[in-house]
Design a protein around this nucleic acid. Structure first.
Length: 334
DNA sequence: TTGTGTTTTATTGCCTCC
DNA sequence: GGAGGCAATAAAACACAA
């Protein structure tokens, strides 16, 4: 026994049987046709249940008659009591567990719905009403609470799973939307690059025509608006990405630079700069190469080449025209 | 009929509360 | 320290397929 607790054995009539149950046991002579009538003692119980100890020898005419077809412990009793010769063996064999009747269980269920905890008074009252041992009532409530807890856990789990599935669906939809937007941004970026490239080509041909003119003409390009400058940087950045060879343009270690000063500028200042030779003879491919920066870029594309920016290309040169603050966007998009 | 899985009843040991 | 609750578990009762 746990903790010195002494429980009257529910499977032993010696432990918990009262006088009534002893009387009932002694009178128990069920027949296969009417197994309960001999057990019925009119007016002997205030409740429809009259059980002797754990054997659950019930004599409840009302409930019994209403539930003859029900599977109850009476059926078990009937099955086991098939003749007088078995009776003696039955009464001497070790007590077996008997299930409560459907009506007893219903009664207990109703009581459980009202309150799942069992106060001592209620326990005694239920035991009286059902003709069971108070200990049986306590055990039933205990087991019933355990079942309720298990069911509750299952419900909680299902609720959590439903919530998770819903959230995951939302998340998946957001991911799809993000990919869609990402694709859209790429398409728009490409479109912008193509436009800038075309614009660059047309301006380049203008420069080629003007290359014979004094250098102060180029200053006009240098004083271009800030918006135009950023657009140009878009082209420059994309060029970087196209080929590593092109990065030489921005590399301070590149032979194209002299002490951080782009040679083209120095050469541009020199009227003898060989850039001038017959620009009109440039093929379309060469012009493309020029616009892609494969050749020395014209100063109007890279204004202020003398600045330290060129020895150490700013991060913003890689922002595809977006301000630096938009890096958060790109980190999100990629 | 029998083997097997599930449900129900009951026990045990530990813990908390008064 | 006793009463009662709970988790783990045993064991009987039951359901059901083969």
């Amino acid at each position: 026994m746990a903790g010195g607790r002494v429980y009257p054995s529910n499977t032993s009539s010696a432990g918990g049987s009262n006088n009534l149950s002893v009387l009932l046991q002694s009178q128990r002579v069920p027949s296969s046709s009417e197994p309960f009538d001999p057990l019925f003692i009119p007016g002997s119980s205030p409740s429809p249940f009259l059980v002797s100890g754990t054997r659950s020898m019930v004599s409840f005419e009302d409930v019994h008659r209403a539930n003859r077809a029900n599977r109850s412990f009476f059926r078990t009793f009937d099955q086991e009591e098939n003749g007088d010769e078995d009776l003696d063996e039955y009464f001497h064999q070790p007590e077996k567990k008997r299930r409560l009747s459907v009506d007893q269980v219903q009664f207990l269920e109703k009581s459980f719905e009202v309150e799942n905890k069992l106060e001592p008074e209620r326990k005694v009252q239920l035991a009286k009403d059902l003709g069971l041992q108070p200990r049986q009532i306590a055990i039933w409530f205990q087991n019933r609470r355990a079942r309720w807890k298990t069911k509750q856990l299952e419900k909680d789990y299902e609720a959590l799973q439903a919530s998770y599935n819903s959230l995951k669906a939302d998340y998946d939809n957001l991911l799809k939307e993000k990919d869609k937007l990402k694709e859209e941004v790429l398409q728009l970026t490409d479109k912008l690059l193509v436009e800038e490239k075309e614009k660059g080509n047309s301006e380049l041909s203008d420069v080629n025509k003007l290359s014979q003119e004094p250098p102060q003409k180029l200053v006009v390009a240098e004083t271009a608006s800030e918006g135009e400058e950023s657009k140009v940087s878009v082209v420059a950045c994309k060029q970087e990405d196209i080929s590593s060879a092109k990065s030489d343009i921005f590399d301070s270690d590149s032979p194209h630079y002299t002490d951080g000063v782009h040679s083209s500028l120095l050469e541009a200042a020199d009227s003898s700069y060989p850039f001038e030779p017959d620009q009109s003879d440039l093929s379309q491919d060469e012009e493309d190469n020029l616009s892609k920066g494969l050749l020395h870029p014209p100063s109007y594309i890279f204004p202020k080449l003398e600045d330290d920016e060129y020895s150490d290309p700013p991060a913003s040169s890689c922002n595809f025209g977006f301000p630096v603050e938009d890096h958060a966007f790109w980190s999100w998009a990629y």
